[in-house]
Design a protein around this nucleic acid. Structure first.
Length: 479
RNA sequence: GGUCUCGUCGUCUAACGGUUAGGACAUCAGGUUUUCAUCCUGACAAUUCGGGUUCGAUUCCCGGCGAGAUCACCA
């Protein structure tokens, strides 16, 4: 019975986009469902691509999604017993492990200049020949003094066979592994070496990452064996595809930062639900999953082998579903920052009342202003908007104003304490004027909101209250 | 090009030798005595192709075609 430990190991090279998040989600599920630990490790060995603030962004996004880690950095503090959790702070550890290989004759300093190697590679390519560095090993490599790159030495190339939780049984031929650089000339390790050392030191049991690493697996396997390390469980995830074409979703395809979705009014629950189900399902017809359900039900057995397309329409639908399921107080909290000009200054009781009738038509929190502003402040009369109604645009304004006068007279004495009573009053108007509902209700709705869409008329009137309703009708009548 | 991998409605997927190939999103149509949204009902829509194996293939095998990943002192 081994204690499950998984990790998410991003590089701080830019914002974290939606395509990356899934490779944090799945290891998180695996760790949580088995009571293990989830580790965050920052792979910052590439100093050229380092982006200031990227790590903070990653942490911010994980917090927002509710993907919490047990070990790793968080702001200026780090927790966990296997740190440091930044690779740049682990130089000595890598050198110690590298020396093991040097001592065993399984690594050598490479004195050959980079351009010379490039020339050899180009030549092989021009001749359509496989290039293997191991065929060009320097005959008398110098002792490694830390200024030359250190190469792993493949002494016994073999065919590798291994199991992948997602992809099944995989294999690669003996030419798939070649002498490769494990420590760069700047003294920092390459990913190929660093992640293996780190995973071993941090006791990671499940390596879960994107499928782009599959073709490097023979290298890793050779390294595990050379270092006499046990193989962890492997799971390689297919890519999330861009909406157009068959390319992996990347920043160039407009892959948005997760924070952009947050700013556009998406709920973290919807984002987690959507991303988790992109290439995974639980085998049933369930579509909506809470985080707890995902943790309980997730399994690699149902992860798709091929890439899944990122479909924003589905995300939008899911977001609407999640918003509808929120209770009003919860929704109220999440709407902070999304209110329009007049909603921003309203009190919470009013906001709650507005949310109650507006909630089911919200697809994102950003829909709020267009759905709610006319509740907080009296809208300007705008007869032009009637052109959006096929029926009303055909009527003379004087006829419509007469209808509004009739409505005003009836509503003056109506019971505003319940929506049902208001509906009854409205229905009486239909009988009284002999007008069709589409006309009568349509014009009253416009006179109260002057908006293209709005919630149900009785609910709207009840919330506005008698004085405000009569006032707005007067505005329309006298315009 | 070498190596490795993948291939069910437009999209996400179910069916692990026997189903009228199911569900969801999207689209379209209708309904819920006002609009929009929700909700309900219905419609449209798929096994990449060709060979095998089998009483029977979406499913197993081989080949073609198509797609992707990777071949760095990047991760």
């Amino acid at each position: 019975m081994s204690n499950v430990r998984t990790r998410f190991a991003p590089s701080p090279t830019g914002y974290i986009h939606v395509g990356n998040v899934r490779s944090a989600l799945y290891p998180f599920f695996i760790a949580r469902q088995s009571g293990g630990q989830f580790v965050l490790r920052i792979e910052d060995t590439d100093q050229n691509r380092f982006v200031e603030g990227a790590e903070e962004l990653i942490i911010d996004v994980l917090h927002w999604l509710g993907v919490n880690w047990d070990e790793g950095p968080d702001g200026n503090v780090e927790c966990g017993n296997y740190g440091p959790y930044h690779q740049t702070a682990r130089r000595e550890i890598y050198h110690r492990w590298a020396m093991k290989l040097v001592d065993k004759g399984l690594a050598y300093a490479d004195p050959r200049p980079a351009d010379e190697i490039k020339a050899l590679q180009d030549q092989a390519k021009a001749e359509h020949r496989l290039f293997l560095y191991r065929d060009h090993r320097p005959t008398n490599p110098p002792a490694w003094d830390g200024t030359q790159p250190l190469r792993f030495k493949v002494t016994n190339p073999v065919d590798y066979h291994w199991h992948d939780e997602v992809m099944g049984d995989l294999s690669a031929g003996r030419d798939a592994v070649d002498d490769f650089i494990i420590i760069k000339s700047d003294g920092l390790p390459t990913y190929n070496f660093a992640h293996i050392v780190d995973d071993a030191e941090m006791k990671i049991t499940h390596v879960i990452r994107g499928q782009e690493y599959i073709s490097s697996m023979p290298k890793y396997l050779a390294l595990y064996d050379a270092l006499e390390l046990p193989w962890p469980v492997f799971a390689h995830l297919p890519h999330i595809l861009a909406p157009e074409g068959n390319k992996k979703l990347g920043k160039r395809d407009g892959a948005k930062s997760v924070t952009e979705y947050r700013d556009e009014g998406y709920l973290p629950e919807a984002m987690v639900n959507f991303l988790a189900c992109l290439g995974w399902n639980d085998g049933t017809e369930q579509e909506i999953f809470t985080m707890d359900e995902l943790i309980n039900k997730f399994s690699f057995a149902h992860v798709q082998k091929s890439g899944a397309r990122f479909d924003e329409k589905r995300l939008l639908w899911l977001n609407g579903q999640w918003i509808k399921r929120l209770d009003v107080d919860d929704l109220l909290n999440r709407c902070e920052g999304f209110w329009g000009k007049h909603g921003t200054t309203a009190d919470d009781d009013t906001r709650r009342a507005v949310l109650a009738i507006v909630q089911e038509r919200m697809k994102t929190l950003a829909d709020l202003p267009s759905l709610s502003e006319y509740f907080f402040a009296r809208p300007a009369v705008n007869w032009d908007i009637l052109s959006t109604s096929k029926q009303l645009s055909k009527r003379d304004r004087s006829d419509l104003i007469n209808l509004l006068k009739a409505a005003r007279a009836r509503l003056q004495t109506a019971d505003f304490s319940s929506a049902d009573a208001l509906q009854d009053a409205l229905n009486e108007l239909l009988v009284q004027t002999g007008e069709k509902p589409v006309i009568m209700f349509g014009i009253v709705r416009f006179a109260l909101t002057w908006a293209r869409f709005s919630p149900g008329l009785p609910e709207t009137m009840q919330l506005l209250g008698r004085d405000e309703v009569l006032g707005r009708l007067d505005d329309a009548i006298s315009s």
